[in-house]
């Protein structure tokens, strides 16, 4: 019993110490080069009625000043010890107006993920993983039906979700083994929270540009800054 108490106390202290030493990694993603023009999506009449302006592709969402959205940024290497348990809060991917929202999200391996259908029409939730161990499924989700819950046992960057009823609907999920990831906002900014002090390789991947960009950063008490430039070829 005494031994167990000692073990639990030590673990708690270590965790607290790690948390105390943790800091944020912030940065900005900048797109270099002129992206191709976004195209109008071929919505069917039912989905078309849900929008007053034509829905367009979301390949290169920028703020007009070079900031690039929907980039998945994560610690690629440098972490030591076991990864913290996945957050108890499920990640959420919604279907609104015949579009997956958000376009890119991140989850930890085995973290619960809820796919919602906020539309008053039928969708199919069809993830198409390519990493062995992550199982493909294709489930109907009734109008405003209950969430479809899933979790991914293997790391996969990026795992595609699509809807076969509305083939223009697709989104991507970055699945990593730890909670140190982020997705850039429209101005290109991102924050990876509570990263333990240490030296890491951080990688940024934009789905469409294809080529990941990596950077080595040292996280200290004040965190670290990691800006990335993604170049179009």
């Amino acid at each position: 019993m005494k031994m167990t108490n000692w073990f639990l106390t030590t673990t708690a202290l270590l965790a607290a110490a790690q948390f105390a030493a943790a800091a944020d990694v912030t940065g900005k993603i900048t797109l270099k080069g002129a992206p191709p023009e976004e195209k109008v999506l071929p919505l069917d009449p039912v989905c078309g009625k849900l929008h007053t302006v034509p829905l367009k592709t979301r390949f290169y969402v920028t703020d007009g000043k070079g900031g690039l959205a929907d980039v998945f940024i994560y610690i690629k290497s440098g972490l030591t010890g076991a990864a913290p348990a996945p957050s108890a809060t499920p990640a959420v991917l919604d279907q609104v107006g015949c579009e997956y929202t958000p376009y890119v999200i991140g989850v930890q391996v085995n973290q619960k993920m809820n796919v919602l259908n906020s539309d008053a029409l039928l969708h199919n939730v069809h993830p198409t993983p390519i990493v062995e161990g992550n199982k493909e499924f294709n489930r109907a989700q009734l109008p405003k039906g209950p969430p479809i819950s899933t979790a991914w046992p293997q790391s996969e960057i990026l795992l595609r979700f699509k809807c076969d009823v509305h083939p223009w609907m697709f989104a991507y999920v970055g699945v990593v083994e730890h909670p140190y990831f982020a997705v850039s906002a429209k101005d290109g900014s991102f924050t990876i929270k509570n990263v333990p002090a240490g030296k890491y390789v951080i990688e940024a991947l934009h789905r469409k540009t294809g080529k990941p960009v990596a950077k080595e950063v040292t996280v200290g008490a004040n965190g670290a800054v990691a800006d990335f430039t993604i170049e179009l070829q």
């Binding site: 191709p36 976004e38 699509k162 083939p167 080529k211 070829q233």
Partner: peptide, 19 residues
């Protein structure tokens, strides 16, 4: 590899397609 990356960057697929 560079050319294939460029093609994938440039094309605007309107439905869920593989690269």
């Amino acid at each position: 590899v560079e050319a294939i990356t460029r093609y994938n960057q440039q094309r605007a697929e309107l439905v869920a397609l593989n690269p």
